[in-house]
């Protein structure tokens, strides 16, 4: 009896492995999967994964789902449709992105990087956890317009997803928790920490004179909100775009008029590639952004006090532009581990 079992076990295991390897259509990740590695010049991340321990299978599944148009109501768009890697996972050139049926969203599609450090999500900070973040774009009628239960049905009936969920979570019965876990694994591991700026902090490079002057100016005039090294303090500020902001911003969540027109301070990582800028994509270039901070700030009652007396000369703007270009992380925006697996 025992002997038969001993014979059978490797066979059964072997057949299982064979099944999985045959059905694997994903290209393998490059390098060894190490989970979340905290860059040595970064603080501790906010997201600790809890029961959602990252694995290579979970991360790969999250990546596949990120680029999966099945998640939208009519199968026309995926998360990647409005978050392009080459643009730092923003939607280049679009003030507002198109959802299903060509409907336009209400705010500019944000760049994505270092999300494991985010205490809140969205420009108004309404979302409190990385795992539940995707529910908003998945279900918003202006975005992917699909219900979670319908997504689960589509994935369950798909030819490969049940096996991929089995490999990642030990069960081929697909739940929304595991769907959100996989997406969270992918998103949380999207770490951008290899720009020239990061190299400078880690003593691996030196800045040109204009870049250095830009960094000094940045630390003097910008870094109180765009706090280093994540380049945001995640607070909500009104940066004087309008005398009266039609978009309530943070007030949409808090219902406090004193929060009208306040938006989460965005990280500046990969900023050279994430145009257009601001919550409504009103500025097409970084020069326009700097012109706003130099001379365009409206003195609205909710204005961030730091901005009331801000001035920028033309040479200062040039130096700041040099500094901002050091924030591009070319490794991040070309890393095939974050790319659409169907295109690799």
């Amino acid at each position: 009896m025992l002997n038969t079992k001993r014979y059978l076990l490797p066979w059964v295991a072997g057949i299982f492995l064979l099944l999985f390897s045959c059905q694997r259509e994903e290209p393998p990740l490059s390098g060894t999967f190490k989970g979340l590695e905290v860059p040595k010049h970064f603080p501790e991340p906010v997201y600790r994964f809890g029961e959602n321990t990252p694995t290579e299978a979970g991360f790969s599944l999250g990546r596949k789902l990120f680029y999966e148009p099945l998640l939208s109501k009519d199968g026309s768009i995926s998360c990647g449709s409005c978050h392009h890697q080459e643009a730092g996972f923003s939607d280049p050139g679009k003030a507002f992105s198109e959802g299903v049926n060509g409907k336009l969203g209400l705010r500019n599609s944000p760049a994505m990087a270092n999300l494991a450090w985010f205490p809140s999500f969205m420009a108004d900070g309404g979302i409190n956890h990385i795992e539940v973040m995707p529910i908003a774009p998945l279900t918003d009628s202006l975005e992917m317009a699909e219900s979670l239960s319908s997504i689960l049905k589509k994935l369950q009936g798909h030819k490969t997803y049940p096996q991929l969920f089995e490999a990642a979570f030990g069960t081929d019965s697909i739940t929304d928790q595991n769907l959100l876990y996989a997406l969270a694994q992918f998103m949380a591991l999207m770490v951008s920490a290899n720009s020239k700026y990061d190299d400078l902090l880690n003593g691996k490079t030196t800045f040109s004179l204009p870049e250095e002057r830009g960094l000094t100016l940045f630390r003097e005039k910008c870094a109180s909100c765009h706090q280093e090294p994540l380049l945001t303090d995640f607070s909500f500020r009104n940066n004087g775009l309008d005398l009266y902001s039609e978009d309530p911003g943070r007030a949409r969540i808090t219902l406090q008029e004193s929060d009208r027109g306040k938006f989460k301070v965005p990280s500046l990582r990969n900023i050279a590639f994430t145009a257009p800028y601001m919550h409504d994509g009103r500025f097409n270039t970084l020069s326009e952004v700097l012109d706003h901070y130099g001379e365009g700030i409206k003195s609205t009652p909710n204005l961030a006090p730091e901005l009331a007396a801000l001035t920028l000369s033309e040479t200062e703007k040039q130096d700041l532009l040099h500094f901002l270009s050091t924030l591009t992380d070319y490794k991040y925006i070309t890393d095939t581990n974050f790319s659409n697996p169907q295109k690799n």
Partner: peptide
């Protein structure tokens, strides 16, 4: 959250 008793935009 699939039970439709969760606010997606205001967690």
């Amino acid at each position: 959250p699939a039970n439709d008793m969760f606010w997606s935009w205001n967690s």
